[in-house]
Simulated assay, not measured.
Amino acid sequence: MEDNAPGHIHHYHDYPRERLGISKLIWPANSPDLNPIERIWMEMKDSIKNQLEIGADFTAAAVRHSIVNEWRNYPVDKINQHVLSMSRRIEACIADNGRNNFNF
């Protein structure tokens, strides 16, 4: 899923997908963000922010350690829940006429 942002439109992004035989979903610009990874990033950012506020160690190494640690410890079950909620989120988006006035 890519939203046609400038970072997603370069042709070299297509090569790995083509090698693996994965089709690209057509995704309109300015559409509601339904990509499960966005919810995961948000949860991870909140956790990392809390860790850094508590420790107040803002060195690049400390931030990197927090990010790597958070990703390694992010529960696979939660990732699966986000991915498996995709059809419900798409249905909610369709019911909302393509807008993003629903919560998941």
Rank of each mutant, 00 (worst) to 15 (best):
32 P>C: 07
29 A>M: 06
22 I>D: 01
11 H>V: 11
12 Y>W: 13
81 Q>W: 13
38 E>D: 01
91 E>M: 15
72 R>Q: 12
48 I>E: 03
67 I>E: 01
27 W>P: 01
61 A>I: 09
26 I>T: 13
58 F>M: 10
47 S>N: 14
58 F>K: 08
103 N>F: 11
81 Q>C: 13
60 A>Y: 01
67 I>H: 09
48 I>T: 02
13 H>P: 11
72 R>P: 06
79 I>M: 00
43 E>W: 04
97 N>P: 04
87 S>E: 15
73 N>E: 14
86 M>P: 03
5 A>Q: 05
17 R>E: 07
50 N>C: 06
74 Y>K: 00
91 E>S: 15
23 S>F: 07
57 D>L: 07
28 P>K: 10
21 G>W: 01
66 S>H: 09
92 A>I: 05
41 W>E: 01
9 I>A: 06
86 M>S: 12
21 G>E: 03
104 F>P: 02
87 S>N: 15
2 E>R: 09
89 R>L: 05
15 Y>C: 07
75 P>W: 02
7 G>T: 09
3 D>C: 12
75 P>Q: 01
90 I>R: 05
8 H>A: 01
91 E>T: 15
28 P>F: 06
25 L>D: 08
60 A>E: 08
46 D>I: 14
66 S>A: 12
104 F>N: 04
76 V>E: 06
10 H>S: 12
73 N>V: 05
73 N>K: 08
47 S>H: 15
20 L>V: 05
59 T>Q: 12
8 H>C: 03
31 S>I: 01
51 Q>Y: 08
18 E>K: 14
69 N>L: 13
96 D>F: 02
66 S>C: 12
100 N>Q: 14
16 P>Q: 01
87 S>F: 15
98 G>W: 04
76 V>L: 07
93 C>N: 00
97 N>I: 13
54 I>G: 05
48 I>L: 00
7 G>E: 03
7 G>Q: 14
61 A>E: 11
70 E>K: 15
56 A>R: 12
84 L>Q: 12
81 Q>T: 15
72 R>F: 08
17 R>Q: 10
64 R>S: 06
41 W>G: 00
97 N>D: 11
82 H>C: 00
55 G>K: 14
38 E>V: 00
49 K>Q: 10
39 R>Y: 09
18 E>W: 13
16 P>H: 07
54 I>P: 04
53 E>L: 11
70 E>P: 10
4 N>I: 02
94 I>A: 15
60 A>C: 06
67 I>T: 03
84 L>S: 09
31 S>V: 00
20 L>D: 01
